[in-house]
Each structure stands twice: as structure tokens, then as C-alpha cells.
Design a protein around this nucleic acid. Sequence first.
DNA 1: ACCTACCGGTTGACGTGTCAATGATGCTAA
DNA 2: TTAGCATCATTGACACGTCAACCGGTAGGT
Lengths: 163, 163
Amino acid sequence: MTEATPGRRGGRQLPTADELRIWRDFIETTATLGSRLESRLQGDSSLSTGDYAVLLALSEAEGEAMRSSELASRIGWERSRLSHHLGRMERRGLIRRQECATVPRGAEVLLTTVGAEAFRGATYPHLRAIREFFVDALTPEQIVAAGEIATALRAQLDVLGKD
Amino acid sequence: MTEATPGRRGGRQLPTADELRIWRDFIETTATLGSRLESRLQGDSSLSTGDYAVLLALSEAEGEAMRSSELASRIGWERSRLSHHLGRMERRGLIRRQECATVPRGAEVLLTTVGAEAFRGATYPHLRAIREFFVDALTPEQIVAAGEIATALRAQLDVLGKD
DNA sequence: ACCTACCGGTTGACGTGTCAATGATGCTAA
DNA sequence: TTAGCATCATTGACACGTCAACCGGTAGGT
């Protein structure tokens, strides 16, 4: 049996004003951080973070190629999102798609030389930006705490499920 | 003078493997958290977090109305983003726009009764979701740490400027 | 054999965000 | 006065994400 009367400690439904202020700071700052990294990467390499994630996965893959659905699960994207994104990347010559030899239904995604080159050029500036924006901003203890917070939030997301 | 040889502590340019792992956990988890909150809000109220931010600011404003540019700076959006968003909200009847009486070329944004009602209906479920996804996921110490991390990251964003 | 159910992938519609260009209007300096 | 010039707001083009519908093909059950 849970508390029947709302508004009391233990049965409280809503965040306090302090919790809410921290929530807003936290979610807005992390969102801004993401978009600033995005625009830095864009300026340095004309790649988006999505492009980068795809190219990273392909670079590390056997033969610089992967099945579309495996790529999707590797980088944690929905299939339709990946399909749209691959279409845009293909138009820019970063990847190619071809029918898969082994699996009848499957599409194979391959890295082009243009894509590999773009990825190599983007890597160093991107990692440097992560250091400047994130690592340099925090103390070593805060970095550890950030990792623990991420783990705890992820666990809660898993607990709550897809809703 | 800084360290001339890269790869050593003190002159290091790139994040360590541990730092990079934490970075990825952190940025991906916070992004997922944001989109899960977004879809929860959408399901509960048919509002996006953007809608919510606009409606919140208008609700708190004198006469439930604001100049467009003041609204933009209040919620920290670029003008064009706000203009596009207000267009979509106007189509749904959540707000109205009219020429400003006091400032010649200013646009006044006003809350409609539909918008006010939608906001009232969304508030409680949204705050409850913040509690479930964020407050309940963390210990009190972690919430404080999250606030400090946000502050430190924000300070670094300010230091690095618009680039 | 046939119907159905699923699976991998694509597509279209639409909301959202950024950037650059465009009005529309006041302010200031030659 | 008028030629710039900054400011307020909108617009168009495009990238990105989600959702739902769709397509082609394989697998099971009858």
C-alpha cells in the first residue's frame, strides 16, 4: 500500500523547487552541450554527429561494411532513422549501399574512400572538442560522478520501459 | 608555456579511453532522457517540450502576453526558431499573434484559452514525469552533483564562447 | 499448395532546428 | 534630406527524427 495522501514526504508526487531548478539546468545545459559539439564538428569537418557515429561504426567493422540492421542496433538507432540518414550520406558520397550477398533481404552498407577520409579528418578535432567542452570543464571527481549519474539515469530509463 | 609533446599528462590533447566512455554514456543518456520526457509529455498532453516552454513563459507573463523577442530571450531561443514554432502553435490554436500597440514593429504573443487549458492539463503529468525519470533515479547527493556538473559545463560553454 | 505472420528495409508526412536572406521600420550621420 | 545601419520579425531551403504505412520475401501451420 502506498501513501494515499499526496503532498507529504514519502507520498510526494512532484519535485521540489530546488529539484526542478537543477533539472532545468541539467537538461538544458546537456542539450546545449550536445548542439555546441555538433556545430563544432560541423565546422571542423562538415559532418554531423550522426554522420560521425555511422562512419565510426563502419570504420571499425570487418571490411568497413555492415548490414543495415546490425549498424542500426550497434549505434542504437531505429531502422527508419538510419535509412533516412544513409540516404543523405549516400547522396554526399560518404557511403554506398548494395544488396547483401549472404542474406537475401539485407542491405549492405559500405564505407567509401571519401567517407573514410572524412572520418579520419574529423576524428582528432572531435576528440579535442570533447576534451575542451567536457573533460576540461570538470574535476576528475565530477567526471566520475557524471558517469555514475549517467548509469543511474540509464537504469531508471530501463526500469520505466518504453511506457 | 604549455607542453610541447602531445600524449603526456599536462600536455595531453585527447580524452583518455575512460573519459571517452563516460562522455558517451553521459551525452547519450541525457539525450535519451530528454526524448523520453518529450514523448511522455506528448502522450499525456499532445504538447512538445517546446510548446510547454512557450506556454509556461506566457502563463507567467503579465496579462498572459509577451513581445516575441522578449519571449525568445526568456526561453533562450533564436528568433527564427521561435517564429517557426509560434506559427505551428498558432495553427493549433494554442496562441495568437497581433501587432504590438506600444512598439511599432513588435509582435505580441498571447495565450488563448485553449493554450492556457492545455498548459494546465500538462503541468502535473510533466512534473511527475520529471520526478520519475530524474529525481527518483538519483540519490540526493547525486542530484546536487548533477547541479554542480551542469553549472561547471555551462561555465565552460560560456568561456569557450560561440567559437 | 495457400494463407498468414513476421522480418528487413524503405518511403511519405509532418514536426522540429539552423542558416541565410528578406521585409519593414526606426536612428544617425554626412 | 537622405543614405546608410541596426533591430524585430518572418520566410525559404534544407537537415534531422518519429510515426505509420508499405513492400518483398521467407517461414509455419493447416
